[in-house]
């Protein structure tokens, strides 16, 4: 050890000095910690009891997601009209989505349903309680939307009706926003506009961590993911997955943030399939908005 570089010796001394912990008194005594742990265990067991019903519903809803709710619907992300193809970019914020005849040549009658029923199972599969002890509740009015290259979109501010819910867990974040538009054309325009906005973001320097999966779950779906790294060039520590599903004049935004799993690349990716199963009962309930 005598031939150590003096500066390295300083480092070892400093680390040695740091080795002995200052005494820290816990904010909670051991009995209180056990009490919280017991409550956590009871909640987990209660949640497991409801899982069987959710899985059964998910099996039906997954089929809806993968086949599309209306196979005859036009592909929303590929507008047939060159004049209807703006080029949104993060720096030039795309305008609020508005329907135009050239963007939606085939949609017909306006949907009769523009409200959201109280029993819509928007929070299905979510725990009842957030990590901080507050209740997980479905709220009416614009949601928090998502950030796409520093631009907040899909809050539902332009929809006829909006309901949203979010769960803040210890290691994950989930949210769903159901937006019901005045008619099918508006819902399709929202999908189309979002697809172009996400594409533009992914193609920009700010969107380096964004991976676009596109309509891998059917013509009326849009998926993209965003990875987070610890420090510049560091290892991925988290992946967010964003899913948009349209059924008639309704659009559902489903977001999940979890531990690092790398960018999702296909509909068979584990994070994609698990979240698809989780959201399937909601998509199934959206059948009330189906056109025709």
């Amino acid at each position: 050890m005598a031939d150590l570089d003096p500066r390295e010796r300083d480092v070892l001394d400093a680390l040695d000095d740091l080795r002995q912990p200052d005494h820290v008194w816990p904010a909670l005594d051991a009995a209180s910690v056990r009490g919280l742990g017991d409550r956590r265990r009871r909640r987990r067991q209660a949640a497991a009891g409801g899982l069987v019903a959710v899985v059964a519903a998910a099996a039906v809803g997954s089929a809806v997601l993968l086949t599309g709710s209306d196979e005859a619907a036009p592909l929303p992300a590929t507008s047939p009209s060159a004049t209807a193809t703006p080029s949104p970019s993060p720096s030039a914020a795309p305008s609020t989505p508005t329907p135009s005849p050239s963007e939606s040549p085939t949609e017909a009658e306006p949907s009769e349903t523009t409200t959201i029923a109280d029993d819509i199972p928007l929070a299905v599969g979510y725990p009842d309680i957030n990590e901080d002890g507050t209740e997980v509740v479905v709220e009416r009015g614009p949601g928090e939307g998502v950030m796409v290259c520093d631009q907040r979109i899909l809050t539902g501010g332009d929809a006829a009706s909006v309901a949203s819910v979010r769960f803040l867990g210890g290691e994950d974040f989930r949210s769903r926003t159901l937006m019901v538009f005045g008619d099918v054309a508006e819902a399709e325009a929202a999908m189309d506009w979002t697809a172009r906005t996400v594409d533009a973001c992914a193609g920009s320097p700010e969107g380096e961590a964004v991976t676009v999966l596109g309509a891998v779950e059917g013509a009326d779906s849009l998926l993209w993911s965003k990875a987070y790294a610890m420090g510049e060039g560091g290892p991925a520590i988290a992946t967010d997955l964003f899913r948009l599903v349209r059924v008639g004049n309704a659009v559902l935004l489903d977001t999940t943030g979890g531990e690092a799993s790398g960018p999702a690349t296909s509909k068979d990716d584990e994070q994609v399939t698990s979240t698809r199963n989780a959201v399937a009962p909601v998509v199934e309930a959206m059948a009330v908005y189906e056109e025709g």
Partner: peptide, 29 residues
Amino acid sequence: YRLAVSRWRRMVRGRRDPDRALGLATHEG
């Protein structure tokens, strides 16, 4: 450590104020 990373990540995203989950302070010198 994983909890700390998750909380840091949420704070970066602006989804969580830099508060304490339990709101309880420890006592230290």
